[in-house]
Design a protein around this nucleic acid. Structure first.
Ligand code: NAD
Ligand code: NAD
Lengths: 225, 225
DNA sequence: GCCACCTTGTGATCATTTTCTCTAAGTCTG
DNA sequence: CAGACTTAGAGAAAATGATCACAAGGTGGC
């Protein structure tokens, strides 16, 4: 059910667009103007046919015999992914991981701006991390409204994650990135993605056992739930 | 090309086994002895038929009319994922993220033990993080051999990640969890999994644009590269 | 022991994703 | 300007994964 045009972009494609985007960005300084699907595929670590199929969902703006105009392609992907706008983010749970994320200057670079931090621990509230003051998690609703937060990052212990998610959803947040290990129940229309260390390690463990089967694991975040 | 039996476990199934494992673990204290595919599916946030299909790849040890014996199922999944053995891990790049990972007591719990830390910054070398002394990255080969490292976690800047990976592969490491954003080229038989914040956020951004399409994003780590 | 009830395991079907192949469209050289 | 060459785009086929539907097997009540 696409918002504007008739084309529907497959989930698998969506999860690869950021990779292409990154690779293209890395090629903007090099004087290159165009890039072929072959080269892009090589840099992104995927199959060239896949690149062409993926990009064809965005429209047909490659030039046969030449390739894709890098600037234009960047612009199109950015538009499709919504990277042309600003997404204010909040991080909930400023422990080991939350603090590292807050200090991470690197995704703030491209539209994702951490605008608030929240924690339940009163001894942490008021402390400054990465120039932001940690606020009490009881104020979460207020914070989200004040800052027009659209994306929330949960880095609390697993036991608290559902509560926090409920509050966030209540406050109108529509996208959640969850670092706690459990599953989150959210209403339709709210997107959740999970990053789970333990899962990743366990998958590696599996392939370690079956070593030499040529299966390279595979990058994250791609598949359907 | 499975190691022992004739059954081959699909990649998609492998990436769900850790979820089942976690859910089952959370149900060991509750006095419950068995669990039905329905209940397990609900707790893991997937379809019941999928649970049964997945588990059927491990063999048929459910009891019709009753469900699966929790202890036995845990044991079987652990065996399949190789969680019955110890996997010594090294973390390379002890910055914001690397330090958070090193301090994280939680995956050390189940077979994954961080046994060494390495960094290129000489001012960090010798410091202690989580009771481990940071060693120079130039010693990486020695460290891997000394500690019999099988899984490496890369948390260096992206620019260094390929170099580090090459060294690790050289030293015989067969599984890499990469937090840097780029792609890693590794020989066949080495598994790489990637955790990329920027990618996750960008995917969320996409679904934020197309809001209300009923697509919940979907959990990570499932899909093929 | 028979019967009503549950729940697994699996063959069949459907959907999605990946890959292959080939054509059409363009560039570049001479 | 013609011909060689490069590369996107699209249709078809193959592979993989999700879901359905139901028979087979097992439990517990009586
Ligand atoms: N640290 C890591 O490397 C790592 C890796 C993978 C997963 N995780 C997961 O990320 C989460 C956080 O890990 P961590 O190591 O940072 O833990 P942590 O204990 O260091 O931090 C958790 C923080 O959440 C806060 N908190 C607790 N309840 C809260 C609530 N209801 N609302 C807001 N804040 C609350 C705590 O005060 C604390 O500051 C855990 O679920 C963990 O499993 C962490
Ligand atoms: N911090 C985060 O929340 C976060 C989130 C997502 C992704 N990342 C990625 O994780 C990586 C690390 O992020 P960070 O915030 O910890 O960065 P950081 O700069 O804090 O830490 C990087 C560490 O790597 C060390 N290092 C540099 N070159 C090295 C080499 N050749 N060998 C060994 N160590 C080396 C540095 O000395 C430093 O200690 C980056 O690639 C970043 O993009 C970080």
């Amino acid at each position: 059910m696409p918002t504007e045009s008739g084309r529907r972009i497959p989930e698998a494609t969506v999860s690869r667009l950021p990779q292409y985007y990154r690779v293209l960005l890395e090629n903007t300084g090099t004087g290159l103007v165009t890039i072929s699907s072959d080269r892009l595929a090589e840099l992104a670590g995927v199959n060239a046919a896949k690149v062409r199929k993926d990009l064809s969902y965005l429209g047909s703006f490659g030039t046969r015999g030449v390739g894709y105009d890098i600037e234009y392609l960047l612009h199109e992907i950015a538009r499709e992914l919504g990277l042309t706008q600003d997404w204010p983010c909040v991080i909930v749970g400023i422990g080991n991981l939350g603090a590292a994320l807050a200090n991470y200057r690197g995704f703030g670079a491209r539209g994702f701006r951490v605008v608030a931090l929240a924690d339940a621990d009163s001894s942490k509230v008021g402390q400054k991390v990465a120039d932001l003051e940690i606020e009490p998690v009881t104020e979460l609703t207020t914070i989200c409204e004040r800052e027009k937060v659209t994306i929330a990052i949960i880095a609390t212990p697993q036991s608290e994650s559902q509560n926090v998610a409920d509050t966030l959803v209540e406050a109108g947040v529509k996208s959640i990135l969850n670092f706690a290990s459990g599953m989150l129940s959210v209403p339709d229309g709210v997107a959740v993605r999970k990053v789970d260390l333990a899962t990743e390690l366990q998958i590696l463990s599996f392939y370690q056992l079956r070593n030499g089967n040529g299966n390279n694991g595979s990058a994250n975040g791609t598949g359907p739930s």
